[in-house]
Amino acid sequence: MRQVPNVTLNNGVKIGQLGYGVYKVPAADSFSLVTQALEAGYRSIDTAALYANEEGVGQAVRQATGDGGPLRREDIFVTTKVWNDSQGFDSTLAAFDESLHKLELDYVDLYLIHWPCPEQDLYIETYRALERLYHDGRVRAIGVSNFEPEHLRRLLDATDVVPAVNQVELHPWLQQSEVRAFGQEAGIRTEAWSPLARGQLLEDPVLARIAAALGRSVAQVVLRWHVQLGNIVIPKASSLARIRENRNIFDFMLDDGAMADIAALDRGHRAGSDPARVN
């Protein structure tokens, strides 16, 4: 299997373009599944305070990088996020301490604001806490999740550190062209959560036709589409077979015709929540 390529964030830090997401991975399964993902060649792991599985993620990372382990800590990129009820400067610093305690790691590679929560109107204050963590060297990069261009414009005007990443729902039925264009102009990398629309895409006839022609699964075609667009992508998987299948996307290409057919699938369909309505 080919190595997962890295992309470089705006501060020079590198992250694997394909990561392993653990949203809705039960706490009891997180250690074993993250361990399997690391063994399969993933080097980026995405968790969050909300997911209640930071302990298992940290345990897997520590085992892989401890005495006799096959990896070094700097080989693994760990992302976590501050949840909505912890927004605000002091609350965010406390939430980060709690996440780091659960992970039992010396630092986090990427720390994100999970949702802008516009009605709370705390994301500027929250981001300033992230800037403090960044300047103190406790995180290697900071960013946001589910931010729309209007939120990003305000954030950029009010703070100093340009977010390294904006993690958003993104898939062929919700291609987020405005968000991606804004990020590209501002130097913010776009990272796709729910890259398969929570499995809804797996029955799409256009994707099925492309997959059949290539002898690949629909999931592999969609993840390959993300990679060719330049997105960072973090699919969830609940079995070793699916972990390996999702990982095996770097030995084929989608041609211009397939990319155009997938581009035509955009319908503004969200499988998850609308950022304007999460508070």
Rank of each mutant, 00 (worst) to 15 (best):
6 N>H: 14
89 F>A: 08
140 R>F: 13
182 F>R: 04
187 G>V: 02
40 A>Q: 10
77 F>L: 00
129 A>H: 02
268 G>R: 08
133 L>N: 06
233 V>C: 00
251 D>H: 12
154 R>E: 11
132 R>Y: 10
25 V>H: 07
253 M>H: 13
226 H>Y: 14
195 P>W: 06
98 E>Y: 05
5 P>K: 08
148 E>I: 09
147 F>C: 00
132 R>T: 14
232 I>E: 09
66 G>H: 08
243 I>D: 06
102 K>P: 01
171 H>D: 08
172 P>V: 00
194 S>Y: 00
61 V>Y: 00
152 L>E: 10
27 A>Q: 12
209 R>S: 14
197 A>P: 08
198 R>S: 05
95 A>G: 05
170 L>T: 06
103 L>G: 01
275 P>V: 04
213 A>Y: 06
14 K>D: 14
237 A>N: 03
192 A>R: 07
250 F>I: 08
40 A>N: 10
265 L>I: 00
129 A>W: 02
226 H>D: 15
189 R>W: 12
32 S>D: 15
30 S>T: 15
112 L>R: 04
234 I>A: 05
194 S>D: 04
127 Y>I: 11
230 G>T: 01
24 K>R: 15
103 L>A: 03
75 D>A: 02
189 R>V: 15
73 R>D: 09
9 L>A: 03
266 D>S: 02
2 R>F: 15
61 V>T: 02
125 E>Q: 12
218 V>I: 04
90 D>I: 01
65 T>Q: 03
178 E>M: 05
51 Y>A: 06
209 R>Q: 13
34 V>N: 02
5 P>H: 11
118 P>M: 07
213 A>E: 15
152 L>P: 01
4 V>A: 12
266 D>E: 09
17 Q>L: 14
279 N>D: 15
98 E>Q: 14
279 N>S: 14
128 R>V: 05
220 Q>H: 04
71 L>A: 03
139 V>E: 11
131 E>R: 09
168 V>E: 06
78 V>I: 06
94 A>E: 13
217 S>G: 07
28 A>V: 12
239 S>Q: 08
216 R>P: 03
262 I>K: 14
264 A>H: 08
45 I>R: 02
20 Y>H: 10
170 L>V: 07
265 L>W: 00
105 L>Y: 00
55 E>C: 08
276 A>E: 13
72 R>D: 13
110 L>S: 04
